[in-house]
Every structure is written in C-alpha cells, then in structure tokens.
Simulated scan of single mutants.
Amino acid sequence: MDVRVTDDADVAGAADETRSLLAWLTQEDELRGRVTPQERPPVPGTLGPVLDGLVVALGSGGAVTGLTTAVVAWIRSRHSDVTVKATRSDGASLEISTKLVGPMTPQELRAFVTDSSRLLEGGQGGQGGPGPDGGAL
C-alpha cells in the first residue's frame, strides 16, 4: 500500500515544509527507505521541479503506525498551522492538523494515533480523521 502525503502550508512555504517532513520521516527506522519525494514540473520561468508531496510505501505491521506517529510528532513541532493529508491509493484520505492534535492530552494522542493508523490501513475509510474521543470528525 502506498500513501501520498501532502501539506497545505502557504504556497511560498509548502515545499520547505514538505522537505522538513521528508527529513523527519526518513529518520524513523520503520520508514527508512519507504519515503519518496514526489515532484511536479517546474513553473515556466523557474528553475527545477517543485516538491509537491511524498509517497510512502507501507507494508503491514508497524510502518503505518510509524508513519502516523511521526506525522503527529512533526505537526506538533511546527510553530505555524499546518495540515498534512495522507491519501491511500483507493482515494480514502486522512487529514491531521496542528489545530487538531496540538491541544490533545497524551492519552488522546495515543488513541488518535491508533485510530488514524487503522484508517490508513483500510479499517475505515473517509476524509477527516478520528477526533480526540476516537470518533470521526
């Protein structure tokens, strides 16, 4: 299963935020060698392609939980509002934002990571994500 990860940071900083997330994810043992940058062609008049997102090749087991945990940790480390959207190849997606996970307690974060990992594995589909109480947003 592949998951495409994008962020919705403002246009000027989107590539920088995506590069930061790429660096963060590649430091995780479970994700090492599974994360590939996805680029789009350069805009006319600019140099080089633009980093548009990341593709994460996920197998079974801890890779999905590792991805979810790493994305939540990365988002909580940001000083600005960001939203990361993970989309499975079947189109089902999950959005995780600073506003959502920032105020969560450690217990709520654990439940959120568990529920989000299940969603990415295909247990439930749909846009949004589990709320702090474990329900859909």
Rank of each mutant, 00 (worst) to 15 (best):
S89A: 15
P130K: 05
G45W: 09
V43P: 00
V55H: 08
G122N: 00
M104S: 03
S77Q: 11
G33Y: 06
L58P: 03
I96P: 00
D81G: 10
E39P: 00
T36M: 09
R4C: 06
V5T: 01
A92L: 09
S77D: 05
P49V: 04
Q127M: 08
P130W: 03
T98F: 09
R32G: 00
P130A: 04
V35Y: 01
V35G: 07
T46D: 09
A23Q: 09
V82L: 11
T46L: 14
V71F: 10
T114G: 10
I75N: 10
A70H: 02
D10W: 02
Q107S: 09
L119E: 05
V72Q: 05
T114M: 05
G45T: 11
V11A: 07
E28D: 10
A14C: 11
V55N: 15
L51Y: 04
S93W: 06
S60M: 00
D115H: 06
V82F: 07
R19D: 10
G123M: 01
D7R: 02
G122V: 05
P130D: 13
S93K: 01
K85H: 09
A9F: 04
R76M: 12
G66Q: 08
V113I: 11
V11Q: 12
D29N: 12
L119V: 14
D10M: 15
T36R: 14
V84N: 00
T98M: 00
G59M: 03
L100A: 13
W24M: 07
I75K: 08
T26Q: 12
R118F: 10
V35M: 13
Q38W: 06
E95K: 10
P41F: 07
G91D: 07
D90T: 10
V43N: 06
Q107G: 08
P132D: 03
G48H: 07
Q127P: 13
R88P: 04
L21D: 10
D8P: 02
A73C: 06
G45P: 02
A12K: 12
E121L: 01
Q38D: 15
L22F: 15
T65F: 01
V11W: 15
R78I: 09
A70W: 03
